[in-house]
Design a protein around this nucleic acid. Sequence first.
DNA 1: ATATTCCGAAAAATGTAGATTGTTGGAAGG
DNA 2: CCTTCCAACAATCTACATTTTTCGGAATAT
Lengths: 241, 241
Amino acid sequence: MTLVDQALAESKTGEGSRAEKVTTATFVYQHLRRDILKGELKPGQKLQIDQVAARYSAGTNPVREALNRLSSERLVDRHEQRGFSVPQLSLESLRELVKTRCWLEAKALEESIANRTQAWEDNVILTYHRLSRTKVRLPEDGGDNSEWEIKHRAFHNALIAACGSSLLINYCNEMMDHAERYRYISMIIATTPRRDSNEEHRLIMEATIDGNVELAKEHLVSQYQTTLRLLEEQLEIVGAA
Amino acid sequence: MTLVDQALAESKTGEGSRAEKVTTATFVYQHLRRDILKGELKPGQKLQIDQVAARYSAGTNPVREALNRLSSERLVDRHEQRGFSVPQLSLESLRELVKTRCWLEAKALEESIANRTQAWEDNVILTYHRLSRTKVRLPEDGGDNSEWEIKHRAFHNALIAACGSSLLINYCNEMMDHAERYRYISMIIATTPRRDSNEEHRLIMEATIDGNVELAKEHLVSQYQTTLRLLEEQLEIVGAA
DNA sequence: ATATTCCGAAAAATGTAGATTGTTGGAAGG
DNA sequence: CCTTCCAACAATCTACATTTTTCGGAATAT
């Protein structure tokens, strides 16, 4: 099944649909984004306009618009007069990413807790439970882990939703996107059984609901540090190969 | 002098030059950005493709690319199938912006101080002195305050340059852009004499060089709070009018 | 009479095709 | 071995075709 067929199949089901009145540019944007996050377009790979256009059955112009949007989100590199490419992944930039995520999400969580409302708490609990009931799918089992990714994102978004800054929420989301790239790469090459992350999420959730700011931040940061450690091991294996 | 003439004049001097091998899309991007920051394109204004294309003597396609880039930076609003517009300014979003800036820049400054090097300190001192020797130009005097804006940015960038996260530096820069929009708007309508901001900058610089993290953060935040208060007054006047 | 809905022309956004410009990589010459 | 030049390739831009929205006025309902 080609990627274009896949897109067309999806459009029948209504998910990621092209029929629901989005422009071609936006269609390409969404799918390019997804394919970069999932690692189907490899880090470092050149994104030749004509090839990308063919891949999504679009013209060059909408592709160009999509690439320009993505370049401002740092999900593609733009090289003046010489096209676009998928940004490289590296241990160094992963460490920087995790560090920055810890700073910003910890702050966002702190503010959220300070502004707590009943509706916000309810949503944290709800998204936690949905996440905890979703299994991580390893590549061996058929591979599509996007359901878990969506619920995982929903949970982390719920935590910071009450921070009072849509800017900060945007930045956190952008960083989640970048982190997702590393997670997908690591799953492809995963050799060690995944830890049970439910427990880690439960700790964050409980401290948050208890209003224990420092403990909640600690668990949040510690989760990211653990993820970083696991990814570091796996990426070092790749680097050595 | 039309804006196009102005652009051509600049290209002779080499600054913002179109001759130095940038694509038309980038040329339009840079000038659109500048015009939005300076308020020459008014908040809320529709950015009709043909008009923008005519304004910068470009085709519709490069304009579209520029607008798509800017939309990802939140410097223009994109409305699916109905074009682009300059984002509105509001007291509410200004407050959110300032709040978020305080959080992120304070963190960045803290980390910078923690990672201090001689080169970094030198640059903080240097950019401070350059800023202190540059006069704020009020609109009455001929209006172009861009020299001060550039030095002001350079100083704030120097402060956070050693924070160890290019992501965080990017976010701070994006927020500086947004803040600049409010400053330009307020200068247009400025009625009260501007405070002497040199003193405020000196306090930040000295505490920073002394390695006094808490005091430096305090002065930084306090500067933003003062700016916010002044802008609030001025914007309320406009809102009431 | 007023409000609402329904055309259809005009305007504007979006997309396509192909012309133009710039980059690349390798062969020819110094 | 290092430049220079050229052809092929790819990015970028222009011009125009297509699609969608907007808006004024006529037709209909209240």
